[in-house]
Design a protein around this nucleic acid. Sequence first.
DNA 1: GCAATCACG
DNA 2: GACGTACGTGATTGCC
Length: 963
Amino acid sequence: MSDTTQTDPVQTVSDQPEPAAKTVDGLYLVDGSGFIFRAFHAIPPLTRSDGTPVNAVMGFTNMLMKLLADHHAEAVAVIFDSKRLNFRNEFYADYKAHRPEPPEELKPQFGIIREAVEAFCVPSIELEGYEADDLIATYARLAREQGRQVTIVSSDKDLMQLVTDGVAMLDPMKNKVIGFEEVFEKFGVTPDKVVDVQALAGDPVDNVPGVPGIGIKTAAQLIGEYGDLETLLERAGEIKQPKRRQALIDNAELARVSKRLVQLDDQAPVPTPLDDLKVREPDHEKLLNFLRQQGFRSIITRVENEIRADGRLVDGAAAPSGSTPTSASATALPTSAPEVRASARFDGKGTYELVQTVEALDRWIAAAHAAGTVAVDTETDSLHACSCKMVGISLAVEQGAACYIPVGHVGPDGVPAEGSLDLAPSDAPPQLPVEEVVARLKPLLEDPAILKVGHNLKFDIQVFGGHGIRLAPIDDTMLISYVLETGLHGHGMDELSKLHCDYTPITYDQVTGTGKSRVTFDRVALDKATEYAAEDADVTLRLYQALKPRLVPERLTTLYETIERPLVPIIADMEAEGILVDCDVLKELSKDLASRLAELEIEIHRVAGHTFNVGSPKQLGDVLFGEMGLQGGKKGKTGAYSTDSATLEPLAEQGHDIVQKVLDWRQFSKLKSTYTDSLQQQIDAKTGRVHTSFSLAITTTGRLSSNDPNLQNIPIRTEEGRKIRRAFIAKPGHTLLSVDYSQIELRLVAEMAGIEALKHAFREGIDIHAMTASQVFGVPLDQMTGDIRRKAKAINFGIIYGISGFGLGRQLGISAGEANSFIKTYLERFSELAAFMDKTKEFCRKNGYVTTLFGRRCHIQGIAERNPARRQFAERQAINAPIQGTAADIIKRAMVRIPSALEAAGLTGRMLLQVHDELIFEVPEAEAAETSEVVRRVMEGAASLGVPLVAEAGTGHSWADAH
DNA sequence: GCAATCACG
DNA sequence: GACGTACGTGATTGCC
């Protein structure tokens, strides 16, 4: 069961959560004409590759698709207005006379939208002389007479008069049901009185006259009082307000005409019998053909995924050229199919939209709703997600259709934008206030039905988190690329764009400049910022379309959806939390180290006979091996003496005091510069804590990495270094909890290679190094010495690294030959191991990658090299990667489960750090014991294997104490 | 910007 | 038997 505990709202289209407004099955009558206009105005301009505008087509198609997917309709029809005049014009010539001609860009789309309906195998209905509303009224009546449920898909107020028991309306864009309550909210009366209110209030849009001076509010009040229009007109003389009374008396006839105009005709002669409106099985080929003609790539992807999920399509048979595993890396963007492009071309600079008004913003939000998927990217003034300022947001809804919303740009002199508290005269460019943009975007960005796609969304999640937005659900193109092609290349956006889209995006440096003249992004001019930022969102969407479809056929969906993707918000929280660091402890250590370094330096210079830079390997080598004549060889192309600790340590042991001093100097210098000094700089001024950044897509094995600062390599191995851990502390009333896996990699070797003797030892809780020592060296456990055990331990580590005689020999200070004989014995004692290593190497040669227990693929380059050195290097990687990678999978699985496990247990502690096989928490003192148990339980249960996983916990005020 | 060195698992 | 060697990272420093 362990594999399926994590669920996420968006896996495939068909997996999406139940819509908020689910209506009962029955007849769905779609107000086609209403939607054409709504879609046209909601979606930014898009054109097909042949120049035909298709934005309304896309909006309409999306709406229809969503409707069919979200509701189990037994019958559906799309109803259109007929072009000609209708019966209302016979008695009121001016009816809808003010309607302007549809915009030029819309006209060609009417026909295409009818094709769209056809492609979905949904009946489309129109009738000369009647408006769509009349046909809808008629069908609704007919269905009601058969006792069937009716849903009118529209948000047009003119249709609200039809709402009654069994007839509801549905606004598919907002996914909102319009029933009695909503109608009452709008008109102030029950649906059956809506026409009376409309007759009085009139409607300037449709040129329905109504009674002058009476609006909806007054009309509702009057109808409420008098019951209906006729009664009101008859008793108009009783009205107290003179003006209102006179208006009603004078315009009684106008009101009656108005009522006839707004009253829908439910007796229209329907062109298609109600019984013919059954939902038919969709013709996928026909639908896909239509979508391809329009170049709706994201919709095509969704449809294909849906079809695939239904199992009606053999993998790859109808997939676009970019989504089959074989051709994916070669051509991500098919060239044959036409593509939707905004008025912009992909490489046409300066054509993305700069959003500076609420109207434009709302248009993009509506477009995102229509598309169902939106690529999001944030721009900030620094790379530190926790402390940076949000400068702008970009959205992309379709290839080429992207915008940039500036919210934090300042003028060239750094004057804040208008709306900031600063009242100084502003030369900041015009832009919407950040609060307003955030407020309008929040429902979209948190909408469980809208997928947010980003590249390295961990960053954007933190930026939005700072503004009270919890971005979800998400897909991350960086992580999709990472699970698909770990080890083949990096996963930065620019690199992936070149690789998959054959396109080089504008670089950050091009926009901000480099070196001395670099400016922060908030000072970049808006046009330049738009080109860069909107393009990033656009590229992200393209990468998504190229990469996401590969997950299923390449069997990487589970890894991505249950491990990598859920980890994103969890790591984001850990980074935002940070860890408390006591600056005074570090200062004290710095001071200490400084004086010891000074002493050592004087001493070293004295022995050398002159001053030199001890920190320069070149100068040091010259002094030690040149001037002083110590034994040591030149190395490498640089021709310089090697002076690393492996070289110097033997010399120090021979009694060369100066060498020992150099080694000490090196160690202290490292501690001071890398840890005590720089760590002080890295404490966040606001939080007093250190916020590292974990990279999720760097390593070739699946591990995380930590940077800025790296908190995964804080010293521990030496006493001096360990002191640095005293500076990492818990806040008042809290304690640090450290829980680490014991011997996880060796346990995994036993498991994956199926080494029975090792598995048995782990199950019995035997000292594993002593046990291997007794096996390999034939020493009984009760005669074990520390030195023999140390050798065995080195061999065990060697196994994990893809052992070689030379490497082991060097580690143990013995000859390669001697080391080789140890290895030989080891492989004889644990005979399953050799087979495992051979099998792994062979698999890697055949496939180019190796896999972990949880299906992660680590691509290994050079496995088939002719050069034996390079090939053997690849082979060692091939041995190591499944082991290291499985351990990484396991701790990630634990990390995904821990926050919810703590919450379920009512515990408030926070996970702060991960150090490969260790997790660090900050917990209230009173919760320490219980938290420790919950965490251990989750960690030990993160995989169920033939060997037990063991997690050990420690607590203390500082990290040094917790270990 | 690269090489050398060394901190961690 | 070649060929150069343990696996995976990140930060700092000196030097070109």
